[in-house]
Design a protein around this nucleic acid. Structure first.
Lengths: 342, 342
DNA sequence: AGGGGTTGTGTAATCGATTACACGCAGCCA
DNA sequence: TGGCTGCGTGTAATCGATTACACAACCCCT
């Protein structure tokens, strides 16, 4: 490999091919507009010089960074790893890079805007329903709405493009499964309320309970934080409440795992003494003991679809007027953490 | 919020404050070089216009993107989520953005170079020891070596900056633990050989076995892929080998989980029938049944240190001549998946 | 009062790629 | 042959921020 003294520019390529920089640019972006002979000379020069485009210059000129920003409340949660992977793959296929942001500092709205307004990213993939999207969406550039797709977590604003699963329906499905198994005493570990999806799951839970003619007991509700530790906290709360429910619907698999683990320490077995339904179907779910019954989320598809939609919007392929609303299905995966009551 | 017709530029701010663009730039980058009164006028104008800097223009001029590229063989592995999070946090503190790349396509070397040579990123954080770093490192810009830090996975090149844990030592520690418990028949599930860390763990295993005077039995070795499925495959391999070892050292926790899960299906219990040591101490490890004995990796610290080092190198704070080599400690966390032999 | 130094600000070039516009040349027809 | 069309290429302006250099204003000292 030839060690270039300096990264070659389009001018260097032009000189090499004895054409103007304009021609090089044309060969690279619309080859058909250039004669075959010139084209070949330019291609050869590109190879010889080892030219790679300077994205900064391109972005400046075109006002487009070919980069999307993915923001999540907590990238540290393994739940996102599949999604990040899917987003990166899909974006790469369309020629886009992915910047990742996690929730940092006090005013996420502000620094998210910074990213977008500063021409670092062309659009935002938001996995966090708690942000003030009005404000984000209000940001405008040349009077055009900021390309924004809300994914996974629901956003209470129909004008915003979204790719989600129907959390309420999924929760109802989970409860229905427990009811069908004969459970009547059902608790629920709730996720952090700043996520809209959490609230939807709770509503689904409450509706399903009502439809089954079952009472929602306050002491069998526990506000968790979607990690395993809060599952153990939930277990301790239930233990302290005197009487255990016969089944628990957990807002996600992590909390279900924490719950089952903690109860086992008290000699209580899942599913013998208590049935547990999780949510998400994370990788461990089927290897856990007992393998978890859970509502599977099509995480990869969410990531792919959301990315595809966002890029369509950025590139003006998607219609401007009507918002995209993709709702994907969750599947009930029955394993061994639930069984017939009694 | 005022809807700007167009993103304001430094010129707009200058006009607003009745100064030149140069002065605005100076106020923003070195305020002390400007009179107090002018400074205040400029700050006010920035507020009024809602100015945010155009990074593309800045990058073009300064030949620096204030962005680092993080590359891993498989971002989809939850193992990386903690690391990604740490990297983002540390980078944000230094004013850097993080681009994330996963292994895509056939020639990772090529597209990684593209990123870096095209001025999208100022440096590379590499979590993949299988890449041809000579080639990457050989890439030069103005005759200066490409800022590159290898993290987590080892790189067989002492000239390259690295932040790792001593995998060989950690593996020896794990085996020593099993030997101390009286185990003499020990198997090993190996990770994918393209990772250097995998090979180090294997060497550590082999050395420790030798030091303990124990034989490494071919049929108790299994090449896995670091996911849970390959743990079950390992179980099936061991089952087929006729005689089970009394203990297994697994290259990571995921494979350990898959192994234990699969053996349980045959009525074999861990730790009653077999002891298992994992590696990493992922989040589930302590909630699994049995809670996993494992070599804890300081993932967050790896992410933080690697990022810090990389940015130090980019900014010329770190010494050019001698490579940074940080070796972090792994801790043996004894839980319940290992017990005394016999 | 005049020379030298310091301080603060403006002017203009620069980074590299894109593209509107202009121009030259070939082909075609009258 | 003259004029028209159309194709391929070059010229030069542009995107927005930074900074070397120039210059003006002021202070201080002799």
């Amino acid at each position: 490999m030839v060690l270039a003294r300096k990264t070659p520019t389009i001018q260097d390529v032009a000189r090499h091919a004895s054409v103007s920089a304009a021609t090089v640019s044309r060969v690279l972006s619309s080859p058909e507009r250039v004669t075959e002979t010139t084209r070949e000379r330019v291609y050869a020069a590109v190879r010889d010089t080892g030219y790679t485009i300077n994205q900064a210059a391109r972005s400046l000129r075109l006002k487009a960074a070919r980069t999307i920003l993915m923001a999540a409340p907590n990238i540290g949660n393994p739940f996102y790893s599949t999604i990040v992977d899917a987003v990166i793959r899909e974006a790469a296929e369309r020629g886009y890079s992915v910047l990742v942001a996690s929730r940092i500092g006090d005013d996420p709205n502000r620094w998210l805007s910074d990213y977008l307004l500063s021409n670092r990213a062309d659009g935002l993939l938001l996995f966090d329903g708690s942000l003030d999207t009005n404000r984000l969406h209000g940001l405008r550039d040349d009077g055009v709405a900021l390309p924004l797709v809300a994914a996974y977590d629901e956003i209470p604003d129909a004008k915003i493009h979204s790719v989600i699963t129907d959390n309420r329906l999924a929760a109802k499905r989970a409860i229905k499964h427990l009811v069908e198994l004969g459970h009547t005493e059902i608790g629920h570990i709730i996720g952090p309320s700043r996520n809209q999806s959490t609230n939807e799951r709770f509503i689904g839970f409450a509706e399903a309970m009502q439809e089954a003619g079952l009472a929602v007991r306050e002491e069998w509700l526990f506000p968790g934080t979607y990690n395993m530790e809060s599952g153990t906290a939930a277990a301790e709360h239930l233990l302290a409440s005197g009487k255990l429910p016969t089944a628990v619907f957990s807002g996600n698999d992590e909390m279900a795992i924490g719950l089952i683990h903690r109860l086992r320490l008290e000699g209580l077995d899942c599913p013998r003494d208590i049935s547990v339904v999780g949510f998400d179907d994370i990788a461990v779910a089927r290897f856990f003991d007992p393998p978890l019954t859970t509502m599977r989320q099509p995480r990869e598809e969410i990531g792919r679809m959301a990315t595809r939609s966002l890029i369509d919007i950025i590139e003006g392929i998607a219609p401007e007027d009507e918002p995209i609303h993709v709702v994907l299905n969750s599947d009930l995966v029955i394993r061994e953490s639930t069984r017939r009551a009694g």
